[in-house]
Simulated scan of single mutants.
Amino acid sequence: MFCPNCGAEIQDGSKFCSSCGASTGVSQQANSNQAVPKKGTTKTIKKSSSGFSVGKIIAIVVGFIFLVVIMVSCMSAFYLTKNENASTETAQTESNETAKNTRGDAKDKDNSVGKNLYKEKMKNGQEVVYGVSSNVVIAPVYAKEFNDSIGSKYHKATPQGKFIGVAVMIHNEQNDAITVNEAMFRLIDEKGREYSTSTKASVSWMMSHHSQEILTEINPGNDSIFTYFFDVPTNADIKSFKLQGRGGMMGDPVVVPINYIDDFKSWLD
């Protein structure tokens, strides 16, 4: 290396000449050379060769994940709806089959007496009309008037007008047991007026006859006879009444005429 001022040979990298003391300019040139790559580096960071920034890449990934979630949700909803519809159709088919078994073939049953009403002959030749509500057979077999109190001296019920007691045969053809209670029944006269059961009279009857007919459970395929009492006007004609019953608290109501079967006359004595 030579001094730019006097031309004397000096050591490489020296900042000043050892002969004349002049500055060789080494430090300024180095600083100038280092500035060039910094500018080039800054330009490289500002713009990538591919044209995509990190923010764009993240946005694309998030959008793809969101699209996948929507597709999975739609497929799951479709699958659940399909299964639910299939289950509903199966349940409806089973219900129709059960109702068909309860009523039997329409050719074998006489339903000319009304909607959900059927007429059959007993072994003694007497005709019986019964109703079907929610696969429960309801047959009012006998009714009787009571002008006086019902029960005993320990527990009795006195009517405002007169009591009409109705013996009702219930046959369960549902898949589960049903609980029969007096709230399932109404007595309806020729004017369409409804009479609810007398709880006090039913309890008095139960206690005096050692019966346990309140809230009685009937298993599938079984039947039982229940006695209910209704407080009606004194001048009401007993044969003008019909019984409205339900196959359970949520069953559809069915109105059935009272049969007055002779074999059940002693039932209400």
Rank of each mutant, 00 (worst) to 15 (best):
E217F: 04
L80A: 10
A177M: 03
L117A: 06
R186K: 14
T98M: 10
G51E: 07
C6S: 06
S50R: 10
S14K: 14
F52E: 09
K191C: 04
D263G: 06
I10R: 13
V166D: 01
K100M: 13
S48K: 08
I58G: 04
S211P: 07
D223F: 13
W205C: 00
I45S: 07
M249P: 04
K100I: 08
K242S: 10
I178T: 03
V61T: 05
S14T: 09
S53F: 02
H210M: 12
V180F: 04
E173Q: 14
K153S: 11
M1V: 10
T81L: 08
T197M: 08
D189T: 00
E173W: 00
V113L: 11
N5P: 01
N172C: 11
P257Y: 07
I258R: 02
Q212T: 11
T93F: 11
K123H: 09
E173A: 08
T24M: 09
Q29W: 12
G251T: 07
T98L: 11
A86H: 07
E9Y: 09
M71E: 12
V137Y: 00
I70T: 04
S224V: 02
S211E: 15
V180R: 05
L215E: 08
S48D: 07
H171W: 04
V129L: 10
A59D: 13
I45P: 02
A157V: 00
M250L: 02
V141H: 07
M206H: 10
N101Y: 06
Q34H: 14
R186L: 09
D262L: 07
M169Q: 14
P233H: 06
V136P: 02
A143R: 02
P233L: 08
G104I: 12
M184V: 01
Q160R: 14
N147W: 02
Q28E: 14
S95P: 00
P37Q: 15
I150G: 01
E217Q: 11
F146S: 03
S49I: 14
R186A: 04
I170S: 04
N235R: 09
G192N: 09
G151E: 00
D237S: 13
D108P: 01
V180G: 05
G165V: 01
C20Y: 08
E89N: 11
A8F: 14
S202K: 03
K82Q: 09
A30Q: 14
N147T: 13
M75S: 12
G131L: 05
L187S: 04
S134C: 00
H171T: 06
N135T: 09
R193N: 14
G21F: 15
V203D: 04
V54T: 14
I164F: 04
I218H: 01
G13I: 10
P220E: 08
I150C: 00
S224E: 03
T197D: 06
V168K: 00
T98V: 06
M249E: 10
T234Q: 15
G251D: 02
W205L: 02
V203N: 07
S149V: 12
L67K: 08
Q29K: 15
Y130V: 05
V68R: 13
G151S: 02
T93M: 12
I170L: 03
I58F: 02
I225R: 09
I188K: 01
S149W: 04
V54W: 11
S18N: 13
M250G: 00
P159S: 05
